[in-house]
């Protein structure tokens, strides 16, 4: 088991996996809370154009993807404000445009091909370069700083935006910050999980955690735990079985979701019985009947 740590590329892949496991659910919880679970998917598509732009210009695709996906996320957020009608169509344009632009640009570039794109679409453990690790670590630090440092503010905005505005919070700025943070997370996750499955890692650990929790802070902590467990074990599995890590990580995450869902139902029943036993249930009191 430990011999996989002898490979430098695996050390890098595992470090990237841990960072993805922390950041993706940390951002995803706010998107799920705001019922925008699909947003990560949209940013993933747009980021593809950014990756291709990197190949075309010779820059590191991680940084071009950050720039393009952040612009895309800001565009989505602006559409959410102003284009209340037909916002879904505008978002669809962004999705398809990002995907098509990526394929177009990569084939125009001298070094790129669709084969390069595949590693970005589904993740790869062998292609995380030392420069990628530096970029991913810096970006992950930013994501953690925002999602945990501004936890109470982002919770208030995502839970009840109207109320948050009346408390005087800079709601627009926080929304834009969250959109940019989601874009940054997509690029953090893109090397290991891949752009097409990045959204799953934002959503599934949160969906799994909330089956078993009663509060936001607990859900956040459990979702990050699940995220780290599935990204690490999925990456190790991919090393032995030679499959794209994105696929094994997401299948594992859905497995965890299924297990927690199956366990949560009897747990909730037990809790209800305990409450009833504590005397909070209905009791028939014949003495008051006439």
């Amino acid at each position: 088991m430990l011999e996989i740590l002898d490979y430098a590329f695996m050390q890098r892949a595992l470090l990237a996996a841990v960072l993805v496991g922390i950041t993706a659910p940390a951002v995803g919880i706010y998107l799920v809370q705001r019922r925008q679970a699909i947003m990560g998917d949209g940013i993933g598509h747009v980021a593809l154009t950014g990756v291709a732009l990197g190949f075309l210009t010779g820059a590191n695709p991680v940084w071009t993807a950050v720039a393009v996906s952040a612009l895309g996320a800001i565009a989505m957020e602006l559409i959410r404000w102003y284009g209340k009608t037909r916002g879904d169509l505008a978002l669809a344009m962004l999705f398809y445009g990002g995907m098509a632009g990526g394929v177009l640009l990569i084939n125009l570039s001298p070094t790129g091909s669709n084969a390069n794109l595949t590693t970005y679409l589904f993740g790869s453990i062998t292609t995380v370069s030392p420069e990628d690790v530096v970029a991913i670590s810096l970006l992950a630090a930013f994501v953690v700083l925002i999602t945990l440092g501004l936890r109470r503010q982002l919770f208030a905005v995502c839970q009840d935006e109207e109320f948050a505005r009346v408390t005087g919070l800079p709601v627009r700025t926080l929304n834009l910050l969250l959109a940019v943070t989601a874009a940054v997370t997509v690029t953090v996750a893109m090397r290991v999980v891949g752009l097409l499955l990045v959204s799953a890692l934002m959503v599934v650990p949160v969906a799994a955690a909330q089956q078993a929790t009663r509060g936001f802070a607990m859900t956040l902590a459990l979702a990050i735990t699940i995220g780290v467990v599935v990204t690490l074990s999925g990456t190790v599995f991919s090393f032995y079985k030679n499959v794209p890590p994105g696929a094994s990580i997401v299948v594992l995450a859905i497995g965890v979701f299924a297990v927690i869902t199956a366990l949560a139902a009897p747990l909730a029943k037990r809790r209800a019985q305990r409450v009833a036993a504590a005397g909070e249930g209905c009791t028939v009191r014949d003495d008051v009947l006439v």
Partner: peptide, 15 residues
């Protein structure tokens, strides 16, 4: 979408 406790919701008012 995500569970929140009574105290967490009330704490938002303190912002």
């Amino acid at each position: 979408g995500v569970p929140a406790t009574v105290r967490e919701v009330v704490s938002a008012g303190r912002l």
